[in-house]
Each structure stands twice: as C-alpha cells, then as structure tokens.
Amino acid sequence: MFAVIVGAALAMPLFAQAQNAYVGVNAGNAELKLSGDLGSGKEDKTGYKAYAGYDFNQNFGLEAGYANFGKLKDREAGASVSMETSAFYLAATATLPVNPQFSAFVKGGVSQNRTKAVLSGFGQRFSGSEDKTSGMFGIGAAYHFNQNISAVAEYENFGKTYSENGAKLKASLVSIGVRYKF
C-alpha cells in the first residue's frame, strides 16, 4: 500500500504539464489524541502538509500528499516519552462549485501513517517506529482568487497512527493554505 501512495505522489509532477493539475501547502492545528488503559489525553501541535492533485473534471479528482502532525512529548517522574507522527495519503476528491469564486469539497482515501516513539528514563532508552495504514477523510472549502490561485481551509482525519499495548494515537489536522492550479 505504501508503494502505491509513494508512486502516486511521485507521479503527480508529471501531471503538472496537464491542465487541471494542482499543488498546495497548508499549515494549521494538528490534534493528537492518545487513549489507552493508563489514561487518555490530547495535545495540539502545529502541523503542515504538502500535496498535489489532478481534477478529472470540475467535480471529481485525485489527491496525494504528505502531512506532519508534530511531536507529542510528556515527562513524568524522571521518565519521558516522545512520539512524532506523519502520514502519506492518497484520496479521491469530490468538489461542488458554489459560484466562480467559491467551492466546497470532500475527500476520502487511505493514509500510510508513521509514528516514531522514544521512551527514556531511569538510565534506559527505547525507540521504535510503527507504520499503520488507516482510512482518512476530509472536508473543506476553497476561495478562488483567479483560475490559478485559491485559498483553502480544511479538516482532515487520518485515523489511528499508532496502536500498541492498549495505547492508541489518532491524528487530525485543521489547516489553511494556498493551492496553485496549472
């Protein structure tokens, strides 16, 4: 699955020569929710994403990208834990043009999430990473300044990014950004 997502992301620059291809960058609030047997909590971090897509027509398209949700850190009683989460995703998009300047969209697809964890304390250090494939979905809106440049606001949920020993980590991103359509 990871190879499909990476292949699609690498193929996107080829679409740049074609009409209806786009690229974009977003930044915003990444929420990391940790739950498990020992407790739960959530932390907000600055997250960002870079993406490329292709609109087959004014209503349907395909998008691939990379999102980084920041690092979750906690320190208690001489021990510390650090978890950094990111995702590659591939999603089908559906767009509803409201008028020439404004459109709404939804997306659904799959993400390959990676969480790197480091636990240290009491003279010991453990580290590892976990890859987890999860469904993802998003909803958003775009304001089109002209036929090439748009401002974008969206919410995306990337599902579980980590699951081990009863602990689960989920990630989502609320972001704004700029999209350039070729």
Rank of each mutant, 00 (worst) to 15 (best):
65 G>Q: 07
162 Y>T: 02
110 V>F: 07
100 P>K: 04
47 G>S: 08
68 N>M: 07
155 Y>M: 09
78 G>V: 02
61 G>H: 09
84 E>T: 08
61 G>K: 05
65 G>H: 04
139 I>W: 07
41 G>A: 09
41 G>E: 07
152 V>E: 09
65 G>W: 04
48 Y>W: 15
144 H>K: 15
153 A>D: 02
69 F>G: 05
77 A>Q: 08
146 N>G: 13
165 N>F: 10
39 G>H: 10
46 T>M: 15
68 N>D: 15
66 Y>Q: 03
97 P>Y: 09
67 A>N: 06
88 F>Y: 14
140 G>C: 11
44 D>R: 14
60 F>A: 03
87 A>G: 06
137 F>L: 08
125 R>C: 01
147 Q>H: 15
71 K>S: 15
164 E>L: 00
150 S>P: 05
90 L>C: 06
133 T>I: 07
126 F>G: 09
37 D>R: 14
55 D>S: 11
122 F>H: 05
39 G>S: 06
51 Y>K: 09
161 T>K: 01
98 V>C: 00
97 P>L: 10
136 M>L: 15
157 N>Y: 12
134 S>I: 01
87 A>L: 06
85 T>Y: 02
58 Q>V: 04
159 G>C: 09
77 A>G: 06
82 S>T: 11
56 F>Q: 04
117 A>N: 10
86 S>F: 10
156 E>H: 08
126 F>C: 01
147 Q>A: 14
108 G>V: 02
163 S>A: 14
150 S>T: 05
35 S>P: 02
101 Q>S: 15
90 L>T: 03
